[in-house]
């Protein structure tokens, strides 16, 4: 396979992620996986909606008491922006600009870590201020599972993108790793898609009551 050969700007294909059969397969397979992930998160959302505000007694915190606009807003902005920065990274990949791509990925990862940090702070806050824990009520279990699954996806995505960047730092772009970068960015967008529903369904609708 000559897929790790170096390309000039002129020989670099228009859609490097789909230029080889392996790339095409990876690309399609990953999209299908995202179709399955859609069902996975839908099941978690469904469980959350069925168990929302289901608590053992009157003292337990409900969605209305817990959530705050500013925190959610900042988290949302961080993740939405990281989606745009990963688009920039893919833009530079298509132009065969490896350095710029890496730079935008670094920003993406930084934003991702900020989001994750905020989420950890938030969970910590709920546990200590409201005694709203994973085991305190069905509501708590469902909330932490749904949002935690998303957070877990963020953490996995960060590890994935970082290891891609480190692995390919010295050798630059080729047709072997271009599909890898591309599907990692698809994954990152998907995480953002899920978050759009989380901030709407869990936080905003939770605050409305």
């Amino acid at each position: 396979m000559q897929s790790d050969e170096r390309f000039t700007d002129a020989t670099w294909p228009a859609s490097p992620e789909k230029a080889t059969l392996e790339g095409k397969n990876k690309y399609l397979g990953f999209w299908l996986f995202l179709g399955g992930e859609t069902v996975l998160f839908a099941s978690l959302f469904a469980t959350y909606l069925a168990l929302k505000d289901k608590v053992p007694n009157g003292d337990a915190a409900l969605a209305k008491d817990l959530f705050e606009l500013p925190l959610t807003f900042v988290a949302t902005m961080l993740l939405l922006t990281s989606s745009l920065t990963s688009v920039y990274a893919m833009y530079h990949m298509k132009n065969n600009h490896f350095k710029q791509m890496q730079a935008w990925l670094v920003i993406t990862v930084a934003l991702g870590f900020a989001f994750l940090g905020l989420e950890i702070y938030e969970f910590n806050h709920y546990v200590h201020e409201y005694h709203h824990t994973f085991t305190s009520s069905a509501f708590g279990s469902a909330f932490y599972t749904l949002v935690g699954f998303h957070g877990g996806h963020v953490a996995f995505g960060l590890m994935w993108i970082i290891s891609l960047m480190v692995r390919n730092a010295r050798r630059g772009l080729n047709l072997y790793n271009a599909p890898k970068f591309y599907v990692a960015s698809l994954y990152w967008h998907f995480i953002d898609v899920v978050w759009v529903f989380i901030f709407t369904v869990v936080y905003l609708m939770g605050m409305v009551g």
């Binding site: 469980t47 168990l51 289901k54 053992p56 994973f134 085991t135 009520s137 279990s141 599972t145």
Partner: peptide
Amino acid sequence: LMMFDRMFGSNFFDVAAGGNTII
């Protein structure tokens, strides 16, 4: 969910804590 309920003490299916076995 079943694993969490049995191993980590969550309450998805524990009716006393607001859970729901129909899920």
